[in-house]
Amino acid sequence: MATGRTGDGRGRLGSALSGLAVAVGCVLFLGGFAWGAVVYRPYTVPTDSMTPTVGAGDRVLAERIDGDEVRRGDIVVFRESRWGDLPMVKRVVGVGGDTIACCGDGGRLTVNGTEVDEPYLRDAAGPASPNSFTATVPEGQLFLLGDERMGSLDSRTRLKDPGQGSVPRAAVEARLDAVAWPLSGGVLERPEGFAELPGGVSRFGPVKLILGVVAAGALLIFGGAAYGPVARRFSRGSRGKVTADAG
């Protein structure tokens, strides 16, 4: 009889712990999604001008930021009337006061005379732009290029506009951190080519932490929910063994 009471006590403790695991898992899972909804906005990339980094139709997660937080190398979502007043996705290569030119002796983009390595380009071995250009970015503005330099309609095509094709920092709505779909896209790392320039690159958003919280919540939910059936099967097996031994 004592053994039976011990087994019942363990069963009740196991059930309580599994229920707690499910409850905590739900909090983490739903909390992670709520956190992500506050910090990030989902976008669908409209064109292939940012291939191969992100392609047309990709679903991306972009951190809601103020334009003053933007650094060189960031991929941003912006909206500007002269660009059609629709959400556009481009990479920031120059900020206020920069002189952007192409191409240097190595065929690379230069920022204030410093060549920048851009391994994310579709043709990283070729010149950083099929056409040469020079632009000086006004204060409070951003110079934007696509990663697919052969066909991207970006600041290069608007050099005759006021500001030489740049857009105001205030036009930025968000900064890309990850590709949600297709799943092979994953997290978008900050480019090292701009890290040595004044101001460096931007800090990474909390997308990895949010994904970790959601994954931990899912594991606790499934683990807690699976405890009951597993424990009952194990208990039935143990009782059957005891009965057989007694017989």
Score class of each variant (00 low, 15 high):
M1Q: 05
R5P: 12
T6F: 04
R10Q: 09
G11P: 00
S15F: 11
L17Y: 02
S18F: 04
G19Q: 07
L20V: 15
V22E: 08
V24H: 05
L28F: 15
F29M: 15
G31Q: 06
G32D: 03
F33C: 01
W35Y: 12
G36D: 11
A37D: 11
A37R: 03
V38D: 00
Y40F: 14
Y40C: 06
P42H: 11
P42C: 03
Y43E: 03
V45T: 06
G57N: 01
G57E: 05
D58P: 09
R59E: 13
L61W: 08
L61N: 07
E63Y: 00
D68K: 11
V70K: 12
G73K: 01
V76C: 06
V77Y: 11
E80D: 11
G84A: 09
G84L: 10
L86M: 07
M88L: 13
R91T: 02
D98T: 09
D98F: 06
T99P: 01
T99M: 03
A101T: 15
G104E: 05
D105P: 15
T114D: 15
E115F: 02
E115R: 07
V116P: 13
D117F: 03
Y120S: 10
L121H: 11
D123M: 01
D123N: 15
A124Y: 08
A128M: 05
A128Y: 03
S129Y: 07
N131C: 02
N131T: 14
S132W: 11
S132C: 01
T136E: 07
G140N: 04
F143A: 04
L144T: 00
L145W: 04
D147N: 08
D154T: 02
S155F: 04
R156L: 06
S166Y: 11
V167P: 00
A170T: 13
A174S: 13
L176E: 01
A180C: 01
S184N: 08
G185D: 03
V187R: 10
E189M: 05
R190C: 03
E192D: 13
F194P: 03
L197S: 08
L197R: 03
V201L: 04
P206Y: 10
I210C: 01
V214E: 09
V214A: 04
V214C: 05
F222S: 10
G224W: 11
G224S: 05
A226G: 13
G228P: 14
V230D: 02
F234L: 14
F234Q: 15
R239D: 09
D245Q: 15
A246G: 01
A246N: 05
A246M: 12
